[in-house]
Amino acid sequence: MKKTALLAVILTGALLILSMENFPSWGDVQSPASLHLSRHFIEKSYEQTLTPNLVTAVLGDYRGFDTMLETVVVFTAALACFLVIRLPRDVCTPGLFYYRHTRTGLVVRKHDACELPGENPTFERVDSDWPPHDVVVVSTCRMVIPFIQLFGLYVVAHGHYSPGGGFQGGVIFAASYVLLAVSHDLRTLVHRLNERVTHLLSAAGVLLFFGVGLFGMAMGLNFLDYGALEGVLGMSLASGHSLGILLVEIGVGMTVTAALVIIFKLLSSRGTVTEGL
């Protein structure tokens, strides 16, 4: 079986390489790809969208509908994880629960007690495979996390001028939350960003993108036509497009951050979103 599979892979690879024989050579200025669409984008996109980064202009504006659907794909991924691996709230795993008495630091073990009744200030839940607190790790991460988040915001906002944008910035922002969970524990992360907040945030991100599109329709233009932003705050047509790209990038960033945090929480806690790692 393995040999047949290997043979099939080699055969397919050989066929694919053979089929590349008529490709234009690397970097050929006369190739169809550099003559047809790219020329128009290179000549016109700055004038039309006031966005020096051509890639952002193409992704965010000319092919904005693709980008919206890609954001929907990220949103779908989070929903899919939630639907498939989230355990029902009344299921208790792992079946053993540890609580620490806050005053004395004494840890007690209980069966079948996911949640202590009511807010209980004297006991706090700790992970069953809980590693001891490490002051160095915790304080270092505490100092680093705000800077990571600031950098994430910068990447989202600076996509017009340099490589970046909503997807990349969103991932960096989500990484700061993952670091929080790794350095403290998952419960700290859930306390900061609970399930409800992350789900609402992921939907709000795509809604912002969608809303920019609907605004175009409300102003009598086509769906996702950022030209509708002309005249808002006294903007010209091109800077309206630039603002439109910024708005949708912020939406993308929100959805990507929320979706990655949702997926991380579900995977690391085996679907319980209470403890893990």
Binding site: D61, G216, N222, Y226
Partner: peptide
Amino acid sequence: TYLLGGWSPPWGI
């Protein structure tokens, strides 16, 4: 035909 984003083909979708 509907031009998404108001860009005419082949530049837009």
